[in-house]
Design a binder for these strands. Sequence first.
DNA 1: TATGAATGAGAATTCATTCAT
DNA 2: TATGAATGAATTCTCATTCAT
Lengths: 216, 216, 216, 216
Amino acid sequence: MLVTDKTPPDERLRDAGRSQNTILAAARDEFAQYGLGGARMDRIAQRASLNKRLIYYYFADKEKLFQAVLEQAYQHIRQEERALNLLGLKPAEAIGKLVEFTWNYYLAHPEFLTLLNSANLHKARHLDDSTQVREMNSPLIETLAEILERGRKDGSLRGGIDPVQLYVSIAGLAYFYLSNNHTLSAIFGRDLMSPKARSQRLHHMREVILGYVLSA
Amino acid sequence: MLVTDKTPPDERLRDAGRSQNTILAAARDEFAQYGLGGARMDRIAQRASLNKRLIYYYFADKEKLFQAVLEQAYQHIRQEERALNLLGLKPAEAIGKLVEFTWNYYLAHPEFLTLLNSANLHKARHLDDSTQVREMNSPLIETLAEILERGRKDGSLRGGIDPVQLYVSIAGLAYFYLSNNHTLSAIFGRDLMSPKARSQRLHHMREVILGYVLSA
Amino acid sequence: MLVTDKTPPDERLRDAGRSQNTILAAARDEFAQYGLGGARMDRIAQRASLNKRLIYYYFADKEKLFQAVLEQAYQHIRQEERALNLLGLKPAEAIGKLVEFTWNYYLAHPEFLTLLNSANLHKARHLDDSTQVREMNSPLIETLAEILERGRKDGSLRGGIDPVQLYVSIAGLAYFYLSNNHTLSAIFGRDLMSPKARSQRLHHMREVILGYVLSA
Amino acid sequence: MLVTDKTPPDERLRDAGRSQNTILAAARDEFAQYGLGGARMDRIAQRASLNKRLIYYYFADKEKLFQAVLEQAYQHIRQEERALNLLGLKPAEAIGKLVEFTWNYYLAHPEFLTLLNSANLHKARHLDDSTQVREMNSPLIETLAEILERGRKDGSLRGGIDPVQLYVSIAGLAYFYLSNNHTLSAIFGRDLMSPKARSQRLHHMREVILGYVLSA
DNA sequence: TATGAATGAGAATTCATTCAT
DNA sequence: TATGAATGAATTCTCATTCAT
């Protein structure tokens, strides 16, 4: 790595953007692990190896910090969804790929589920203020609508499917299984997270969703 | 006033059972509204119009109180599910009725969703200790297994359906929609809880699940 | 002192009224010494030898505590003023006695001045809520009005004196001298609090006020 | 742009004197509004639209800044008092004019009262260090002494009046009324700052003071 | 002269929990 | 069984002040 005159002596210091990102990452982990109520500002500072005061300097308070974390999380998943390039696939394949992606994303980003969880508990109060989030989500639904329309036209998909309902269903099938995995594992006395169990769940989800969207 | 063994419980000034129930109800509301972390013992005492010390007397601490609330909640939904008498119906009807019941129960008992939510955040640590809950849930899965088997035999349902996967899917379709309702409403800018939107969701859920279980 | 069965084992403990009074006294001293902004809840607890949490238990927060202290202070001075029994004296004597009393009270209760000071800085926001204080003060003005009226009738005092203006003037002559004593001492380079200086000030005040109220 | 020694101060981007004055003005407003304890260095910087660090650069710390503000305030009122040219008037007129000036100055400069207030709370600790202030005040007392002496000689004023006592009384009559105006308004339930009430107060003050100094 | 980034020591307030009766 | 008083350990947030450039 090139070190020039402009490189600060200590790489971690006196870089506002970097500090903010460090804090955001630390906060994301803390909120994911403990929820909004259980998260501790002290621990976030520790995780970030930064002074606690700096968090307030950049993010005003815990609530605002949570909101910032939430926005970043949405931004990330939407970005990845965009990268799927669903419109480049055949309708049925696109739906299948979205199911698969959703499952894998939730699996790889358990913090996303917990953040959603906390946001729900607090009645999405953090989103009402945030126009960002809404704007980031509309495109996905539009894409889905376009896919459904194409499928209806080429006869591969049945008609009359509401893209919002479909999106919520795909997410719900994955979310409930993963988010409640501990509860469910305890209740049913069987490990829902073993590799085999996971692949079975994905298989089941595809069957359910594709069975619904494919024209008979 | 003479208090004898025969005095009905609800006429005594000091009634252990009644106090415990009052506390449980108050705690359920508080946990549902604020989550485990956000719940306040003070407020629970206030809601119950009972001394805070009494909560500790009966339930030892906040965690144990939460666990008691959770157990009661599971007990309640399982009891209602039993009352459906699903084994008295034709297989396909039984599945449809379970979908409908799940949706309506979640709708009528939003506190159940929030309690689940909190339990998940805390990794079901409250259930591991509780053999009660597991025992309460097995019967449902057995019932579902029996229904699926009957349907397979009489040709009304396809074979190879895992009752646990099915149950999780039914619950997930309802849970995600309702639990995230604020987030989703904010994101999609449309009211998901209007009477019309609700009935559309139930319709959608039936289509998805029945489309999956019915033999082609 | 008689110790009965009802006497708590440790005299300082578990007596709500006593604890509240202890806190009030400690808070009064702290606020008087440091002002509202400079006062420390920690120090108040220490002064009272009571747990800090207890202050919040009884007084909710710092502002409310300050208000309670302020009310008590007003209550005290009004009570002492009542005890003067001014209506039992001849008009001119009554005015003279009020001047003297005001001077001596401020001298003996410097905390009263500081509390007033703090209250002023915060624009009497603490009094707006408090109907108590207003009610406690009206009687004094009424008494003064009665005295002035009697004096006018018997010819000992001039007419047309507004009791509020008079009261404010008496207080102001004492208050400014004492409240600014440090500033003034520094500015004029002379000790304004020596016994001689004090008696000179009282003498001066009597001359000014009596010169004003006595009929020519 | 060329910056030379001849460049007028207010055209330079970096002007030490101007920055200091901007800070002083901002600090005066902040201290006046919130008191010494309640003032915030952050807000002062914001009010001045200057970097917080600069305040420390010029004024070392909050206490010193307060002292500087206080000195400037005294300087200002003394300067105005000098401009009255009291020695050019007849003794009685001079006293009357001083009463009027004091009242109007306090009215026009409420921040002066609050600053005094804060200084008092902190026991004039800020003045002990400051020889400036003392020097600025002596002239006024000397002027007053001269006026009183002249009046005694020409028979218009009574003898034996201590100029310090008189000055304190004039100030006290105005100060208490204005400084406690909120408290008093709340207590007496009448607006002490209406135009009418103000002119009545000034009238009253003149009567009290002139009644005292005029020879019988 | 000027600035944005960073900090340690505290501040008010909160909270689950225990004490004494 | 029931209660009001009391507490210690946090917890969020604040603030004057300093650092590095």
